[in-house]
Simulated assay, not measured.
Amino acid sequence: MSGVRWLNAEEQRVWRAFMTAVTKFSEHLDRQLQRDSGMPMAYYEILVALSEAEGRAMRMSELAAVCHSSRSRLSHAVARLEKEGWVARRACPSDRRGSIAELTEEGFAVLEAAAPGHVTAVREHLFDVLSGEQLRVLAEISRAIDSGLTVECAKAREELAEL
């Protein structure tokens, strides 16, 4: 393909090292949560988001955005969390089409029990293996990647809205 800026050998090494590290780290965190708390990382992220929201409740559409999830995937996950008794769903009083997910007391207790193991895994495999300077650079790099993707995602949403 003409016009494609192919990766050179060094860029290929960086790209593959980055993807390997991110994938292994994510898989490790997911396995730790499954083993110690009986939930996948995606469920933990939902519980965390709700625990940090005002009143421990959030509109489903907002929760999907916060968790970087599609609405259908989030709805499926929340349905599973409802079956566990960790989340309750209710109608949105200001918009009948919308619904609100709320963290239950049982869900908060499950989150509190899961958090120490999760934080330990994050600390051991991210913060403890990097120097202070590496962490500063990682934060800078992460913000740059996020910023570029945020702009790209906003453009994509605008294009979809025009269809």
Rank of each mutant, 00 (worst) to 15 (best):
V4E: 04
A9G: 12
F18G: 05
H28V: 03
L33N: 00
Q34P: 00
R35E: 06
R35G: 01
D36Q: 12
M39H: 04
A42N: 04
E45P: 10
E45M: 12
L47E: 02
V48K: 08
A53K: 09
G55M: 08
M58V: 04
M58P: 07
R59G: 03
M60T: 12
M60S: 09
S61W: 06
E62P: 07
E62W: 11
A65Q: 09
H68C: 11
H68A: 12
R73V: 02
H76G: 06
H76D: 11
H76A: 15
A77W: 05
V78L: 07
A79R: 10
L81N: 01
E82V: 08
E84F: 12
A88N: 11
A91V: 10
C92Q: 08
P93I: 05
S94Q: 14
S94H: 12
D95F: 07
R96N: 09
R97T: 11
G98F: 02
G98M: 11
S99Y: 08
E105F: 02
A115V: 15
A115P: 07
P116S: 01
P116K: 01
G117C: 06
V119W: 02
V122K: 13
E124N: 10
E124D: 15
L126G: 15
F127L: 13
F127Q: 14
V129Q: 04
E133F: 02
L135V: 06
R136G: 14
R143S: 14
A144V: 11
A144Q: 14
A144T: 14
I145S: 03
I145E: 08
G148C: 03
E152I: 02
C153A: 14
A154M: 10
A154V: 07
L160F: 00
L160W: 00
E162C: 11
